[in-house]
Design a protein around this nucleic acid. Structure first.
Length: 427
RNA sequence: AGAGAGAUGGCGGAGUGGUCUAUCGCGGCGGUCUUGAAAACCGUUGACUGUCAAAGGUCCGGGGGUUCGAAUCCCUCUCUCUCUGCCA
């Protein structure tokens, strides 16, 4: 959530940022917001003055009562009547003003970092780095959805029967390689100084709000929480970012706690409502998938350096897995609602002959921290922290690339780094 | 799931309608003393809002109510603890 004082003092900058993210009518929204805020503050002032008067009179009554001057107290009491009516009405006005302001404020996305390129579509993302050679596959190479069928390691039809489309069943070496990847990713993160977390995979509304899934993006999550209409609403997590970052909701950290580096493996659940198209076969898009997520909480002045460190970490993972990849700096229109700067990693899928997104590393600056009320004290002043996160890594597309790129007449070769985790070197 | 008790500042813990502007202790920070430290002593120590800075206002688990005035009384929700039951 953007901070009102910032918007007030940086109107033009805010409007320009919103425009880069393709928000419609940013001037109108911001001017409206500034006017509402002005109104809110005036009402607050008026209410405060009225309450101050009431408080003074109440104190006076107390003293008179104590002194036994009952009749004088009654006279003062009569004076409070109007003040009370007035403060009641001001309170209502203020309440409405605050609710409206908040409702408007939460609809605004984060402002993009200066380095974010202009652009609306994924085609306008900027490739900033690439590594590895695209493999030359045998003429009879096939995409992963055929490989998994042939090897009997992932069964989509079975998942269909148990749950529905997009919930595959992993079996035998398919299940073992999943577990191997998870452990490999966790161990690498732990070696890099991250503390492992096992969070709940259901979250409440406050948590969903804290990281920016609510309001509005409710439709992307699966809801749970019981059949009663009055039951608290819970959601299956779309990413471990939500429960892990929310550990620090309403927390005031001390400088010595920083930096915070957490890693967690969780399954992730996404409804992906309306986003199923032609080339989302096999593991390319699922409703349930596994992911190891890294989360950092940093001082503002360190956060961009931390993001670079996170990029290096993810690079290391892909290189150890011997997968060709590239890094994209996302353009304003393709970035998520809450992010200030996002880098996507894409692995090369040899048989599909296309890049597959497998990680997204973002700096949210104070956007989430403001919602979370995640702060620390520096030189006696409270300051919002910066939150960052990144996939390190999401499994399905890694597995897809790994299977496709390493296929050979002898079988599918497991990268050396993964062999100790798998317990086999060929599928 | 049943019965009972409770929720107060970083922690412990007072406070049952009117200087609560929340007692006190611990912890933290600053100082005195010391070569340095410990001990002792003195001082200081919450958040939000508002402002150039103030004044002022709000906050005692959440929400609502009674009252001129609520940490304190009433309603409601949530959570925690103890006992009993059930259970991976």
């Amino acid at each position: 959530m953007l901070q009102l004082p910032f918007i007030r003092e940086n109107r033009d900058l805010t409007i320009a940022g919103l425009r880069k993210k393709y928000v419609t009518n940013p001037e109108e929204i911001i001017d409206n917001l500034i006017a509402s805020d002005q109104h809110r503050r005036e009402t607050q002032q008026e209410l405060d003055t009225t309450l101050a008067q009431s408080n003074a009179l109440a104190k006076q009554i107390g003293e008179l009562m104590k002194a036994g001057k009952r009749e004088e107290a009654e006279i003062v009491k009569a004076e409070t009547v109007n003040l009370k009516i007035r403060s009641k009405s001001l309170e209502d006005t203020l309440q409405t003003a605050e609710t409206d302001l908040q409702a408007l404020l939460v609809t605004l996305p984060n402002l993009p970092h200066a380095s974010v390129p202009e652009g609306r579509t994924p085609e306008e993302n900027e490739a900033v780095f690439s590594w590895g050679e695209k493999p030359i596959l045998p003429a009879d190479a096939v995409p992963h959805w055929e490989l998994i069928k042939a090897k009997g390691i992932i069964d989509f039809e079975l998942g269909n029967k148990i749950t529905g489309a997009g919930f595959p069943v992993y079996r035998g070496k398919g299940a073992r390689i999943q577990r191997a990847l998870i452990n490999f990713f966790l161990d690498e993160a732990i070696a890099a100084g991250y503390v492992e977390i096992q969070p709940p995979i259901l979250i409440n509304e406050a948590s969903a709000f804290g990281t920016g899934q609510l309001p509005d993006k409710e439709g992307q999550m699966y809801a749970a929480g019981g059949p009663e209409a009055t039951a608290d609403k819970l959601f299956l997590i779309p990413t471990a970012e939500v429960p892990i970052t929310n550990i620090y909701r309403d927390v005031i950290l001390s400088e010595s706690d920083l930096p915070i580096k957490n890693v967690g493996y969780t399954p992730c659940f996404r409804r992906e409502a309306g986003s199923w198209g032609a080339h989302v076969r096999g593991l390319n898009r699922l409703h349930q998938f596994d992911k190891v997520e890294i989360v950092q909480i940093r001082k503002p002045e360190e956060s961009y350096q931390a993001q670079q460190e996170m990029l290096e970490h993810v690079k290391g993972l892909l290189q150890k897995l011997e997968l060709p990849y590239r890094i994209l700096r996302l353009c304003g229109g393709d970035m998520s609602f809450t992010s200030a700067l996002t880098f996507d990693f894409e692995v090369w899928s040899g048989a599909q002959q296309r890049w597959l997104e497998c990680s997204s590393v973002s700096n949210f600056e104070t956007y989430q921290a403001n919602r979370l009320k995640l702060r620390y004290k520096v030189e006696g002043k409270m300051q919002l922290l910066h939150t960052l996160n990144g996939s390190a890594l999401a499994l399905p597309r890694i597995l897809a690339a790994l299977l496709e790129n390493n296929q050979s007449p002898e079988g599918i070769r497991i990268p050396n780094a993964l062999v100790p985790y798998c317990g086999f070197d060929m599928i």
